[in-house]
């Protein structure tokens, strides 16, 4: 039982990752309980019951692990942390008698939230968050490469570079890929060995293009997209049966003969 409780709170700690919103929520609940008795039945009681249910060890062991599987932490979304903190803050600020007290408390609250929380737009959080290159909000290289491929073929069968394959079919469903995100078992969970081996080659940094070409021919894939800075020495691609077709935004598109 102790292990289960420890496990639950480890998941909570990992999910919050140093964010103090949850402790602030607990403090807000305590404040509202004593300061605003009229809110006990409509806010505090349901919030406490929710926490008891979400953190219940037996429910975790016998229900949540089966139902949520790896995503038990999504149950924490049910905890009304933000509205409870906001309610407590408003109650506190409006109950203070003097204006200077309200101003000081507002400033302190702002500092606590900013320092205790983590900015969703901070550099740390935003390795994925950039200025939009286009209205599709996908890498511009994907748009350019896909457009180039679609100009060559209405339904191109492509071995796409790993940088691009997650977004290629977001732009156009006419792009047919050998593996896409299946390479990481995110979609079908059972990518076949051949496709997996091609992905391994393409991710290796020094692919065996002859092997890749053989599999592509066998499976009817006609185009290969690689990064310009990974271009092999002169003649290597041609020896494997590839002919250069077009460059697009830092990527090279090759067509496979035969």
């Amino acid at each position: 039982m102790k292990d289960i409780i420890f496990g639950i709170f480890s998941i909570l700690k990992e999910s919050m990752a140093g964010n103090l919103i949850f402790p602030m929520y607990l403090v807000s609940l305590v404040y509202l309980f004593f300061a605003k008795p009229e809110k006990r039945r409509i806010i505090i009681g349901p919030s406490v019951l929710l926490m008891l249910v979400i953190f219940a060890p037996h429910l975790y062991q016998y229900v949540y692990l089966k139902v949520f599987k790896y995503a038990y932490w999504r149950a924490f979304w049910l905890i009304p942390a933000v509205p409870v903190i906001a309610c407590a803050a408003v109650s506190l600020l409006t109950d203070l008698p003097k204006k200077w007290m309200k101003a000081a408390a507002s400033a302190a609250l702002a500092v606590i939230i900013c320092i205790g929380g983590t900015n969703a737009y901070s550099a740390y959080m935003t390795d994925h968050f950039t200025r939009a290159a286009n209205a599709y909000k996908i890498p511009q290289a994907v748009v350019d490469v896909d457009n180039a491929l679609l100009a060559m073929d209405s339904r191109p069968y492509v071995v796409m570079h790993p940088d691009l394959f997650c977004y290629s079919r977001v732009y156009s469903s006419n792009i047919m890929q050998m593996y896409g995100r299946d390479a990481y078992s995110f979609i079908s969970h059972n990518i076949d060995d051949e496709a997996k081996s091609v992905f391994d080659q393409m991710s290796s940094g020094n692919p065996d293009y002859a092997y890749v070409a053989d599999i592509m021919r066998k499976r009817g894939y006609s185009y290969l997209v690689i990064r310009q800075d990974e271009e092999p020495a002169d003649g290597v691609m041609e020896a494997c049966g590839f002919s250069f077709r077009q460059a697009a935004d830092g990527y090279l598109i090759y067509a496979l003969a035969g």
């Binding site: 919050m16 990752a17 964010n19 932490w73 979304w77 929380g117 900015n119 737009y121």
Partner: peptide
């Protein structure tokens, strides 16, 4: 806006 910290928060 400050309720981030991990990729799991609401």
């Amino acid at each position: 806006m400050f309720f981030a910290g991990s990729s799991r928060t609401a």
